[in-house]
Deep mutational scan, measured.
Amino acid sequence: MEQGTVKWFNAEKGSGFIERENGDDVFVHFSAIQGDGFKSLDEGQAVTFDVEEGQRGPQAANVQKA
Rank of each mutant, 00 (worst) to 15 (best):
E52G: 08
G23E: 06
V51N: 02
G16L: 04
D25T: 11
E53R: 09
S40G: 07
D25A: 09
V47Q: 01
F9H: 01
K13N: 09
S31P: 00
R56T: 08
V6G: 04
V6Y: 00
G35C: 11
I33G: 03
G57P: 07
N10S: 10
E2T: 09
E43A: 15
K65N: 08
S40F: 12
E21M: 12
E21P: 12
D25R: 09
G35T: 09
N10C: 13
G16D: 00
G23S: 05
F27V: 02
L41F: 04
W8C: 13
F38G: 06
R56Y: 15
G23P: 02
I33H: 00
K7S: 03
V26H: 01
A61P: 00
I33S: 04
T5I: 14
E43T: 14
P58Y: 09
A61C: 11
S15N: 10
E43M: 14
A46F: 13
S31V: 03
E2N: 12
E52S: 09
W8A: 03
A46Q: 12
S31T: 11
E12G: 10
I18F: 01
E2Y: 15
R20T: 07
I33C: 06
N22I: 10
K13L: 10
F30C: 07
K13P: 02
S15W: 15
E12Y: 13
E52F: 14
V63G: 00
F9T: 00
T5N: 08
P58A: 08
L41G: 04
D24N: 12
K65C: 09
G35W: 10
S40V: 09
T48I: 11
E12A: 14
H29S: 05
F30T: 01
L41M: 05
Q34G: 08
D36W: 11
D36E: 12
F30R: 07
E19A: 15
E52N: 08
A11C: 14
S40P: 04
W8R: 05
G4K: 01
Q45R: 05
S15Q: 15
K13I: 11
T48E: 06
L41Q: 01
K65A: 11
M1T: 13
G14W: 02
A66S: 12
T5A: 05
S15P: 02
T48F: 13
Q34L: 13
D36P: 12
W8S: 06
G54W: 05
E21F: 10
F17G: 00
L41C: 05
T5S: 08
A66F: 12
T5M: 09
V6W: 00
E19R: 15
E2I: 13
P58F: 10
T5V: 14
A61M: 11
L41D: 02
I18C: 06
D25L: 15
Q59W: 11
Q55W: 13
Q3Y: 15
V51L: 11
G35A: 09
E2R: 09
K13M: 10
G57Y: 07
S31H: 06
G23L: 07
E43H: 14
N62K: 07
E53V: 13
D25G: 07
R56H: 13
I33Q: 02
A11E: 07
G37C: 09
V26E: 00
G23F: 05
Q45A: 09
G37T: 07
P58Q: 09
N62M: 06
V47Y: 01
F9I: 00
F30D: 00
V26Q: 02
K7A: 04
R20S: 06
S31Y: 05
N10W: 09
D50G: 08
D50K: 13
D36K: 13
N22C: 13
E43K: 15
L41R: 02
N22P: 06
D50C: 14
V51D: 02
V28R: 02
S15D: 04
D25Q: 12
S15Y: 15
A11I: 11
G57V: 07
T48S: 09
F27E: 02
G23H: 07
D42C: 15
E2F: 15
G44Y: 05
K7Q: 03
G54D: 07
Q64Y: 10
D50E: 13
Q34W: 10
N62G: 04
M1C: 12
G54A: 07
M1F: 11
V28N: 01
E53W: 15
W8L: 03
G14V: 02
I33W: 04
V63F: 01
N62R: 10
F9W: 15
E12W: 14
L41S: 02
G35L: 08
K39R: 12
G23M: 08
G14P: 00
A66H: 11
G44S: 04
G37Q: 06
A11H: 13
D42R: 15
E12M: 13
E19K: 15
E2W: 15
Q64V: 12
Q55V: 14
Q3T: 13
K13A: 09
K39D: 04
Q45H: 08
F49M: 03
R20W: 08
H29R: 05
D36Y: 12
E52M: 13
D24M: 12
Q3E: 09
D24G: 13
T48P: 01
G16Q: 01
F27P: 03
K65D: 07
K7W: 02
V47G: 00
V6R: 01
D50N: 14
A32T: 04
G37S: 06
V51R: 04
I18N: 01
E19H: 14
Q34T: 11
P58K: 10
K7R: 10
D36H: 13
A32C: 06
N10F: 03
P58N: 07
T48M: 11
A60E: 02
G4Y: 00
Q3P: 06
M1G: 12
K7N: 01
F49W: 02
E21Q: 12
N10L: 05
G44A: 04
G16V: 03
E19P: 02
P58I: 09
K39E: 05
R56C: 14
Q45Y: 05
Q55R: 15
A60R: 00
G57D: 01
V51H: 01
A46W: 14
A32H: 06
V47N: 01
F38H: 08
G57M: 05
N22E: 08
V47P: 00
D50H: 13
G44E: 02
E12K: 15
K13C: 13
M1W: 10
Q45G: 05
Q3F: 15
A32F: 04
E52Y: 14
F30E: 01
D24K: 13
V47W: 04
R56F: 15
E53S: 10
F27R: 03
V63M: 02
Q59C: 08
E12T: 13
V26F: 05
G44P: 03
R20F: 06
Q34F: 10
V63N: 00
Q59M: 10
S31R: 10
D24L: 12
Q45K: 03
F49S: 01
F30K: 04
E2H: 15
T48H: 08
Q59K: 09
G54H: 08
E12S: 13
H29C: 09
L41W: 04
E2A: 10
Q45L: 08
D25Y: 14
D36F: 12
T48N: 08
A32R: 04
G37I: 07
A11D: 05
V47I: 05
V51A: 02
E12Q: 14
